[in-house]
């Protein structure tokens, strides 16, 4: 009887965490996507490309560069409990993991937005040669309870045009 009770408590804690992860995590994600969309629309005028400026001159763009400097944007986004369990189940069934596609999408777009905001605050007119680098400080490979997070750094060369 006692064992049965503790099993029941464990199960209800698990389901409680799952529900918190699903609902609160869903709200957090929705809010984040909303802010990303708003800022992306606002910063649409600012060009970010992954070509070197030499290429732009080759295709006939008139580019008089005054100054250049290095900019980067960094973000760490953690998954919620519900996504973690989904990711764990995906180890058995395989297939497409929509929950994590949105997580990566959020992180990448946020990193690029931060790069843009930083470049604008330092007076740049465009960013060239954008690169993305994935980091890993929060990885625990050998445990089921691994807290996975997406850590992305976007970096590039900001140009000030005459």
């Amino acid at each position: 009887m006692n064992e049965y009770n503790s099993l029941l408590i464990n199960l209800s804690v698990f389901i409680g965490l799952l529900l918190i992860g699903y609902f609160v995590g869903g709200i957090v994600e929705k809010r984040h996507f909303k802010s990303i969309l708003e800022r992306e629309e606002k910063l649409l005028y600012f060009p970010v490309i992954n070509l070197a400026p030499r290429r732009l001159v080759e295709i006939g763009e008139d580019l008089q560069i005054e100054n250049c400097f290095f900019v980067s944007g960094l973000v760490v986004i953690g998954e919620d409990y519900f996504k973690r369990i989904l990711g764990f189940l995906a180890n058995f069934f395989g297939g497409r993991l929509l929950s994590h596609e949105s997580l990566l999408d959020r992180a990448r777009r946020e990193a690029i937005l931060r790069l843009k905001e930083k470049a604008i605050s330092q007076g740049a007119d465009m960013v060239v040669n954008l690169q993305l680098q994935y980091l890993s400080i929060n990885k625990e490979t050998d445990s089921q309870n691994a807290n996975n997070s997406v850590e992305i750094m976007a970096y590039g060369t900001a140009l000030k045009v005459k």
Partner: peptide, 19 residues
């Protein structure tokens, strides 16, 4: 961060650390 891992979202402590 482990609390943050329940509900997801940005982990500011790690962002600062990596910066």
């Amino acid at each position: 961060a482990s609390l943050k891992n329940l509900v997801g979202g940005e982990i500011k402590g790690y962002t600062e650390l990596l910066e």
